[in-house]
Amino acid sequence: MDFHLTDDQEALRKGTRAILAGRFSPREAMDAPGRLDRDLWRALGDAGFFALALDEAAGGVGLGLPEAVLAFEEAGRALLPGPAVATFLAAGRVPGAAEGTAVVTAVDGVLVPWLAEADTVRGDAAEAVPLRSVDPLTPLHRVPGAGRRASAEAVLLTAAEQLGSAGRTCEMAVKYAREREQFGRPIGAFQAVKHLCAQMLVRTETARAAVYAAALTRDETETAGAKLLADDAATRNAGDCLQVHGGMGFTWEAEVHLHLKRAWVRAELGRTAAEAEETLAEAL
């Protein structure tokens, strides 16, 4: 047993982070909200992001779900907009998805992200109506009725994005707490602030263990648990990050609100907390 990342997995994580940092910034995306950057999508396709788990014979990279989880953790960390999970899962099934030349979205529960920008929609979105989305970087539609249940893989990759966001907001809070001075010292020297940051790390690391393990076991109950804990880590860490940023955290300019709003959106995708908890209870 060695739960930690292999050297190849570490390299994949670093490489994905570098590609995302070089090609995308949330601030620039905010200049054209609601528009998907097709160049970025193709660049991700060229880098093998969408074809990561596709067989090499089918033109993919031939890696597994654990590697996909690491890549989506980075996507969540970077606040990557777009229906990345649906496009990834469509690779090899929908032409162009693996290459990033096609944008694929899916009905997930009662929501459809990025419907207007997608080339292909999985599920029935004929009667979808637009919402005024709380997340400026995720346009949303809503379908009537019970909707379409996301696959276990979609649930896990969404959880991985939440994990990435949770880790990022923890870092942002720590960085700000070390720089921002009040009462003549960095606010991170005060226990009240310090303890918020410590709890953020605890949530992140607990969610990390849950998400990575679910990627290895592919167990449906464990996946539901991973989503539950990752949702909790992402939403609560973003809230605490906002609190550590004080008044600055309440501004449009700060990136914090984008993490919080995206975390709220993802919490409704895949499995909601209520669905996950019922799945977990049923298995007891």
Binding site: D2, A207, A224, L229, E277, A283
Partner: peptide, 25 residues
């Protein structure tokens, strides 16, 4: 109550995985 127990199940499974993570470290 049922959902509370469901959440605890996620919690203790994750704690077991965190133990394995720390042992690997």
């Amino acid at each position: 109550l049922r959902r509370r127990l469901g959440r605890l199940s996620a919690e203790f499974t994750a704690l077991w995985r965190l133990t394995q993570w720390n042992v690997s470290e």
